[in-house]
Amino acid sequence: MMRSAASTVLLAALLLTSGCEREKREFKSERAESGDRDEVALSSLSPGATPPQVATSGRAATFEGNAYHVAQGKRLFTWFNCNGCHAMGGGDSGPPLMDDKWIYGGTIENIVATIREGRPNGMPSFRGKIPDDQIWEIAAFVRSMGGNLSKNVAPQRNDDLNPFPAENRRPPSPPTTGGQPLPASRGTQ
């Protein structure tokens, strides 16, 4: 009896320590603009029986599992005027980011590539303008807006007055045709 109680306490204590990683702040950035280490596919189609071949650098976990990076991404999202076209995820002249429709792929590597290289019909290329680590942070935040990240790393809502819950806690807006959201669909978020 005593032993099982002790092991329960020990296990609970171990569980507590597992929460420490999510807040760890890693300030050192990589020296070079890495960029080319992820080979992403923009389509889910591929000839033959196998899906497209992709190769990832494994940096996704560093950014997606860390509350600091996601919160920084939220800050940079506004600072670099992403909300100028995408609003806070609901979409405006740019497509919405909090629905489940990903025109150029929804993994973090895809989103990083989209920000870095730009996409036709309006998405600018930020290569060389935003350092790579910050692009990863923004991409992690973009993923969090659709509720794709674990809730314990998703950023809280802003400090300023806001009648809505945080982006990642709102119901996703209905998918609309890319780049052309209907005015009516914007009122429903």
Binding site: S29, R31, A32, R75, P131, D132, D133
Partner: peptide, 14 residues
């Protein structure tokens, strides 16, 4: 910048 003021919002630009 991160070596002088860790955590600052100024990034290291390569």
């Amino acid at each position: 910048p991160q070596a002088i003021k860790p955590g600052t919002n100024m990034p290291r630009v390569a």
